[in-house]
Design a protein around this nucleic acid. Structure first.
Length: 292
DNA sequence: CACTTGACCTGTCCGC
DNA sequence: TGCGGACAGGTCAAGT
């Protein structure tokens, strides 16, 4: 669901759509989805102009002229969909990519801008959240202090990757790369895809993965993340971009959700198992658990 | 401290 | 057809 490529796709969309717009009104249906005090919202959100949109790990940051920022985590089923003032929902209209009208029953927060356009935070399962924080304090929240480096930053090296992995040397390699404090942005889809690319069994203990395989995994992680950003991310059920459109990475996926189909490299039937408490997809011939 | 499991939610699918 | 249970998977709290 929303992992680094999906959140990055939304960020790119929103950074074209939001800057310059001024918030006129905010409504929310669920305190958990937007736990801020109403007083803060009235003073620092209403009337503020969007300055820019950033991403860190799987978190979106919408920076406001009030020196506050909206910090948004989509968790599993979150969506951020922008709708212009003249949008008509449904097939046959110029902007008919949205399947149904918004707000819908999953809408948790609705932002209305002064020009009549709107931004919807939809979240079926209510795991995601929106917070309003002083921009200067964002780096100090727990999540930001603990989260690891961005895998697509030019400064992130295979050496640093290996070093950070070794903090989790007695756990499975899959659990380690899903750990956001090791590196940022990997979720279940890109974990399986990159481990297949590097021919590593997800249950292999980190300490038993060779240096060469770790280096290969580093390359594969960057490859699958970049490819997915190119394809607009992975849409399973819920994910859509800032314009309500789906991404197409899953039609290029090699193992994820492809149990019963042939491995694209060797033709062996892909199997699904459970590793680190998650559904996990592998080629059983090419990905073997290594023990030392 | 290192690591694993369960909880948080809602919707869908599968077997009986 | 209805109904219970498993499953989906990001993160944090609680347990071993």
């Amino acid at each position: 669901m929303p992992e680094l490529p999906e959140v990055e796709t939304i960020r790119m969309g929103l950074s074209e759509l939001l800057p310059g717009r001024v918030v006129r009104a905010v409504t929310h249906d669920n305190p958990k989805s937007f736990p801020n005090a109403p007083a803060d919202v009235n003073v620092f959100l209403i009337g503020a102009e969007v300055v820019g949109v950033q991403r860190r790990a799987k978190v979106l940051l919408i920076e406001l002229s009030s020196k506050y920022s909206l910090v948004i985590h989509l968790k599993m089923t979150g969506q951020l969909v922008f709708v212009s003032a003249d949008t008509r929902f449904g097939a046959g209209h110029p902007n008919d990519s949205l399947i149904h009208a918004l707000p819908d029953k999953s809408t948790r927060v609705e932002f209305t801008f002064t020009d009549g356009s709107r931004l919807f935070f939809n979240d079926q399962r209510k795991f995601g959240w929106v917070r309003l924080l002083p921009t200067a304090e964002v780096p100090n929240i727990d999540f930001m202090r603990k989260v690891g480096p961005e895998p697509l930053d030019a400064s992130f090296t295979a050496g640093e990757f290996a070093e950070r992995l070794m903090r989790r040397k007695n756990t499975s390699i899959k659990a380690a790369i899903l750990d956001q404090t090791v590196l940022a942005g990997i979720g279940n889809i890109y974990a399986d895809e990159s481990l297949w690319g590097a021919k590593i069994h997800p249950a292999t203990l980190v300490k038993n993965v060779s240096r060469q395989k770790i280096s290969s995994l580093f390359t594969e992680i960057q490859y699958v993340l970049n490819l997915s950003i190119q394809k607009g991310g992975s849409s399973d059920k819920n994910y859509v971009n800032a314009e309500g459109k789906r991404g197409s990475y899953l039609s290029f996926a090699r193992v994820f959700r492809r149990e019963g189909q042939p491995c694209p490299r060797c033709g062996t039937t892909i199997v699904k198992l459970r590793v680190a408490g998650r559904g996990t997809h592998i080629c059983p011939k090419e990905q073997k658990v290594v023990q030392k």
